[in-house]
Computed example of a mutant assay.
Amino acid sequence: MEFKEFDSNKLMYVTNRPDLVFTEGDGMWLTDHNGKRYLDYLQGWAVNALGHAPQCIADALTEQGKKLINPSPAFFNAPSIELANLLTENSAFDRVFFANSGAEANEGAIKLARKWGKKNPATNGDARFEIITFKHSFHGRTIATMSASGKDGWDTMFAPQVPGFPKATLNDLASVEALITKHTVAVMLEPVQGEGGVIPATKEFMQGLRRLTKQANILLIVDEVQSGMGRTGELFGYQLSGIEPDIMTLGKGIGGGVPLAALLAREEIACFEAGEQGGTYNGNPLMTAVGVAVIKELLKPGFMDTVRERGAYLRQRSLEISEKYGFEGERGEGLLRALQLGRDIGPQIVEAARNMEPVGLLLNSPRPNLLRFMPSLNVTKEEIDQMFAMLEEVLAKVEK
């Protein structure tokens, strides 16, 4: 079937897309409308924690779809209660609010922090509403989360921004301390800046940030939309540092591909009052049943051990190819990693890899000087080896 037979012009333009339509997926593989297969190292931008079309998600959708899809968030439903319990039992948090996207969860975190600040004003009575965020951070595409993000150019894209988000420098504690004022209510960061180029916050920085926020009586918010749900080799990225934040947001991997996100908070922080937070589809049983299926897979004995092993192997193979081609190394945590190319050839590699025949390779270059790898958490060593073999074929062409 020719691509021109798909009337794609009816979709609103938001980004450049290649002339292909994906029709099927299985694990680490996608198939397009012509039957061509692609080894997928995007996985929906770290969304498909268990790969494409995992059986446990298909079963959860089928079984729950026959029972109950959405009774409205005005009532309790069993899957949302079960998922909330699984999340709190395995984290430092006591309360959960379910949302549909990471941006929505982050918007909720901003609201919750400001609500807490209103209930706990500065010692002189001044309102506390400012949330310190970080340069090169990414928190979503709503007006408030774009304002919170430190992505270049976003301060003017839909100006004026929402005020109250001064920007510090990741892994520089002094830059955070310098921004704390009587109006500061929280510090918000990604344990690994994904869109910023896979830049991990160091253990020392995270521990120092936790001490600083406690001393200043302000909240620590971790945006784990990309780093959460096993991606870093721990169930949640903050666990790498041995700290306990006040608020956490989840998205992407929590639904394994379906629209599901979560806002978690410690008991004393969860201060929303009736009517202040909600959403038509939030916490619906169809999506939360999938979330239950996903987290149960992650909690199976040995699953996270395998993620750590695969992450170490991906790091090893990245360092090998870096040395061979004179690149600048690699960085990341678990199965969220970046190959630092040292030159702006990322977009050319992405396009050449996708156009390989007879099998394509899907890669991501959030910055032109690096490639980001986001495989499913159950990727095999053979699939890692296959990716690097294909990448070497592409490099031979691009570097030439």
Rank of each mutant, 00 (worst) to 15 (best):
G108I: 02
F75E: 14
G140N: 10
S8L: 15
Q348C: 03
V398D: 04
I69E: 14
V379Y: 08
W29S: 08
P191E: 04
W29F: 15
N70Q: 01
L20W: 13
D59Y: 07
V185Y: 03
K67W: 10
R17M: 12
A168N: 03
R310P: 03
T184W: 11
K4E: 15
P121G: 08
V307F: 09
R308I: 04
F134Q: 05
V398T: 09
E276I: 00
A289L: 04
G140M: 08
Q55G: 09
N16R: 13
L20D: 11
L335G: 03
V379D: 04
K203S: 11
D172T: 08
M157T: 09
I247H: 12
G228I: 00
M229S: 04
P358L: 04
G125Q: 03
P301Y: 08
L173P: 04
I384S: 01
A168I: 02
F373Y: 14
Q55F: 08
L219E: 01
P285T: 01
D246S: 10
W29N: 09
L260C: 05
L212Q: 09
A389Y: 13
A174G: 11
L30W: 02
P71D: 14
Q64N: 07
G196E: 10
T15L: 15
F97Y: 11
R315P: 00
L339D: 06
A92C: 13
G278Y: 09
E351Y: 12
